[in-house]
Every structure is written in structure tokens, then in C-alpha cells.
Simulated scan of single mutants.
Amino acid sequence: MHPDSVRETDRVPHGGSDDPDLLEFSANTNPRTPEGVAEVYADALDAARSYPNDDYPEFRAAAADFADCDPGDVVPTPGGLAALRLAFAVRVSPGDSVLVPYPSFGEYAREIRLQGGDPEFVPHDELLDADPADHAAAVVCNPNNPTGDAYDPDALRAFAARCRDADALLVADEAFLGFTDRPSLAGTDGVVVARSLTKLFGLPGLRAGFAAATGDLGHDLAIARRAWSLGTPAARVGAHCLGQSAFVAETRERVRRERARMADALRDDFAVYAPDAPPLSASSAPFLLLDLREGGPEDGEQSPAELVAAARERGVAVRDATTFRGLDAHVRVAVRTPDENDRLLEVLSDVRD
């Protein structure tokens, strides 16, 4: 990390509320968790009186099986963001440029700047056409946050090959890929995959995730990783969750069904972001991006801040998406359970009348 850059870099706003009285649609986490999590966590507390096995064999095996890669490619991290920082730390030097999509997760640019690098922003739907030559790295978010669209797997692998030929690292943030049946880039040479257990398994406070990379790149990540990077409860709960295939399948089906239902209902009052041309597809993520410039109050345009405040007064938290680069009239809403989604639809219809 570059000391001068730290002084010049700010924090990044995020969704999420700690108000228990609000129905949470501003953070994209699963409202359900796999069965047995509490029991696994409780059993791990006694073992937490000793340092964990720093090799994390059970966690790495479960992560490798989940992402379809070799256990030796897995580097345990306390969340997906820690995996991203690790990737940039081993490959980005002061003055390096990195291709970064927008609108997308704001932490990419922040982490690159902390290393002294320079983010070069590219529209997320044009990123796979960008030339990675003369860049230290490129970043893809798949599916993209906050738009929700996912890249065509063949186009993404072709871009990974171009990055490899240009000696540019490809960092693939797959925080939401578990909500789809699309293949991971884990195990692809020249690529660092960052995965999080936060979103799919509904455990944002657990702080468990992993990076995956092969060869010298994987070796560098493993060496740079902090010792005991996962606490024992996080490692054991993480391994348990990663093995819950039935839970994952049920979650994917629920999100697919509810996302389509919500999008249909919301189109009466919003423009719902839904690309339908390659290399992207319509939302594959557990959220929807809404444009406030269509529908809504007849007596004037409603700002995202006004909508967020009005929804909050009715007990629902939604995300002001104007904090994402390139968006100025948008909000993002998560996909939760059917009853909760019904409440969101009711509130948003009310505040748009």
C-alpha cells in the first residue's frame, strides 16, 4: 500500500442499514441462511480458543469444489473485498493503470488508488472490447453491481486470454455469481477470482471469502495473505455453507422467479435496467436497478434521495444508486422473500403516486 495514496483516498459509500425496524432492500444479501449455521458456529467457539490451522484444508476443499478449481488455487480471505485488496497488492504498483468498469462497485477504484495505481474507467458494457495492453490489470464484476447483468462466458474467457497475452492481470469479482449457474473463472491462468460468502449465504457479518488463482500468481497471493486470515468460526461456517447445494439451488430459483415478478410490477413506475444484447444479459443478480426518470409523480421529477427518504418513512430501506459513477437518477433494490418483496412493491408504488 502506498503511504501518500492513503492520505489522498476516501472511503466509499455502501448500502445496508443496521436499523432493525427497517425492511432491508439496500444491501444485496440473501435473507435466508443455510440450515445448521448456528450449530456449526457454536461448535466452533470452543475451538476458537486456539489458533486455526493456517492451511484451512476443509475450507479450501469446500471452496474449490464450489468454484470448480483445485484446492491449491484457493486463498482464504476475510470476505471478497479482502481478496480484491490482495490481488491489487501483489500486481499494482504506483503509477500503474487499471481498467475499471462503471457503473460498478466503488471499492475497485479505491483499492487501486491505495496501491498508488490509476483507475481508467470504461463503461461496463464495453469493457470486454477494451485493449488491456499497457495496463497492469483489468477488473470485471460478473454479474455487475449495480446493473445486475452478466457477461457471456465465452466472451469473458476470450477477454481473459487477451489480458494474459498482454501480461495484464484480470481480476474477476464473482460476489454474485453464486446466484447463477454460470461457470467461474477460477482456475484460469492469469486471473484472480474474488468470491464472497456474504451475499449468497446471508452472512455479511461473518467476513469469509476467498481468492482463487493458479501458478505463480496463486503462490504470490498465498505468500502475501495474512496469517490466520479466517477465524475458526468463519472457516467452519464457510465450509459448511459452501457444501449446501440444495440451499443454493433453492435460492437461485427463488431469486430468478421473484426478480422477474418484481421487474414486471416495477415497470409501471420505473425504467428497469435490463440489457438484452451481447456481451451482457438481463439481470442475473439478486437486485434490480431502477431509473426514476420514467413514471412517478406527475408534478415533477422525484430525486433518488427523495424516494429513499419516503420509503424509509414507510419502513423500507432502498439504495440511492447515485453514489455509483455514471448514475444520477437511479435506485437499487434487492430481491428478498415473496412477502417482503410484496411490501417493497406496495411502498414504491405508494411513494411514486
Rank of each mutant, 00 (worst) to 15 (best):
F201Q: 00
P94G: 01
N53K: 00
E174V: 08
V92Y: 07
A64H: 05
R252Q: 10
E111S: 15
D339W: 02
S284T: 08
H124R: 15
Q244L: 05
W228S: 10
F179R: 03
I112Q: 11
D328Q: 15
T322M: 06
F247Y: 08
P13D: 01
E294M: 01
G95E: 04
R164D: 09
A310F: 12
L81Q: 11
S283N: 10
C141S: 09
R164Y: 08
V140I: 15
S245M: 08
P94Y: 01
F210T: 02
R343P: 04
L114H: 04
V308M: 06
I223A: 11
R336H: 14
T147P: 15
N28L: 00
R332E: 14
L344G: 11
A208M: 07
V171L: 13
L45G: 08
V74F: 11
C241M: 04
G72A: 14
D154R: 15
S5M: 14
D118K: 14
R254Y: 00
A158Q: 14
H240K: 09
A282K: 06
A311D: 10
D264W: 04
S26V: 01
Y151D: 15
L22C: 14
F59I: 04
T323N: 09
L114M: 09
A246C: 11
A311M: 08
L348G: 01
A265C: 08
H219E: 15
A158C: 13
D350A: 00
D43I: 01
A42Q: 14
V92R: 12
R256K: 07
D149R: 02
V318W: 06
H124V: 14
A138V: 11
R110K: 15
P34M: 02
T198H: 14
L22G: 00
T77A: 11
C69P: 10
D70A: 07
D268W: 09
S196Q: 09
T322K: 03
A194V: 12
A260I: 07
A161K: 13
F159K: 05
D216F: 00
A212L: 02
A321C: 07
F88E: 04
A274E: 03
R254I: 11
E24R: 10
Y151R: 09
E174M: 09
V191T: 07
P119S: 10
D291W: 05
L128T: 09
V12Q: 10
D54S: 07
T322R: 05
L84Y: 04
G296V: 01
P76H: 05
L114A: 03
L280E: 14
A155M: 06
H2C: 15
F287V: 03
E126F: 04
P78T: 02
V333W: 12
F324Y: 11
R314N: 05
